[in-house]
């Protein structure tokens, strides 16, 4: 670190004084790290499937056809057909939207709630911190999936409640992370300087400290997106969540699992693979996202 500092004055002249270099910086991050590039390509693929999926799939995902039930993958049905003769490929593609919506909405909710609670606890300390921290500890004391099951079971079986349950069980992670990140910067020099510039406490927290806590939170977000998809699929898998016949990866795996013993592996494999690929994509995305939001990574 000290070496890097020592080198700075020499390295600086080589820098182009380019404002608005965010795009160039993104390109640099993508080029420097092939895994990040792969993750972004896969993400783009998932986004296209989510937005355009229902328009481009070859078959109606809900249309049953008893004559062609349980057909193995072929040119006509790429991923085969299920026990009701529905096209598995179409269902896997169409399910992308629902699964992404659930996970993104859940993560956005827990990020917003967790960031607010954690920042306040980290900034004010004292009783605010104690109360917030103990409440969060209580949430974390339950096995998270069981807690999510309980919430959905109690509130009712709907997409909204799956989102809410996933958000609540994830909230403590964001709150703890932002609490720590805010707390270590509470007495930083630039915070004192902001006080001299006439900032109030809340304005310091929102405009000065919190943006500096974003890079590690980005990593958390991307890891959590994968987890949230798994969680939603898991709830659907055990029958608490999205209901059939709506295409959703979790239910499809659950329904297809029955047929694996009789040799019809394609029912569970393809939605399972889509799920795995989505989780993999989000997990890989983390480091790249962090590098993009951290100005210090630019130089």
């Amino acid at each position: 670190m000290d070496q890097a500092k020592d080198l700075m004055p020499m390295a600086v002249p080589a820098l182009a004084p380019a404002p608005g270099g965010l795009l160039r910086h993104m390109l640099y991050v993508l080029r420097a790290n092939p895994m990040t590039l792969l993750a972004f390509v896969l993400l783009a693929l998932f986004l296209v499937a989510a937005v355009l999926g229902p328009l481009v799939v070859p078959h109606n995902p809900l249309a049953t056809d008893a004559a062609s039930a349980l057909m193995p993958p072929s040119l006509q049905h790429w991923f085969g057909t299920d026990d009701l003769g529905r096209d598995v490929f179409s269902r896997v593609v169409v399910a992308t939207r629902l699964d992404l919506v659930i996970s993104v909405a859940a993560v956005a909710l827990s990020f917003a709630g967790g960031a607010v609670l954690g920042s306040l606890a980290g900034f004010y300390g004292g009783w605010t911190d104690r109360i917030v921290s103990r409440v969060l500890d209580t949430v974390m004391a339950f096995p998270l999936f069981v807690l999510a099951m309980g919430i959905v079971a109690a509130l009712g079986n709907s997409v909204g409640n799956i989102v809410l349950a996933t958000a609540i069980v994830n909230l403590p992670f964001y709150a703890r992370l932002s609490r720590t990140e805010v707390n270590i910067r509470r007495e930083a020099g630039f915070v004192q300087a902001a006080r001299l510039s006439g900032h109030s406490d809340l304005s310091i927290l929102a405009t000065q400290i919190f943006p500096n806590a974003l890079p590690p939170m980005m990593v958390q977000i991307s890891l959590n997106l994968g987890w949230a998809i798994l969680n939603a699929a898991g709830l659907s898998f055990i029958g608490l969540g999205v209901r059939p016949p709506t295409p959703e990866w979790g239910i499809m795996v659950a329904e297809g699992a029955r047929f694996i013993v009789s040799g019809e592996w394609w029912l569970a494999l393809f939605p399972g693979a889509a799920l795995m690929l989505a989780v993999f994509t989000f997990n890989m995305l983390g480091d790249g996202l962090r590098d993009i939001v951290d100005p210090r990574a630019r130089s």
Binding site: G189, F190, Q192, A193, R195, L196, G198, S200, N212
Partner: peptide
């Protein structure tokens, strides 16, 4: 922070690196 005298009392900090917000 809300006092009208706030702007008339200012300070230059010891550690310039620490006193500048890394995101600004």
């Amino acid at each position: 922070a809300r006092s009208p005298l706030r702007g008339r009392l200012q300070m230059v900090f010891q550690d310039a690196t620490d006193s500048l917000n890394p995101r600004f």
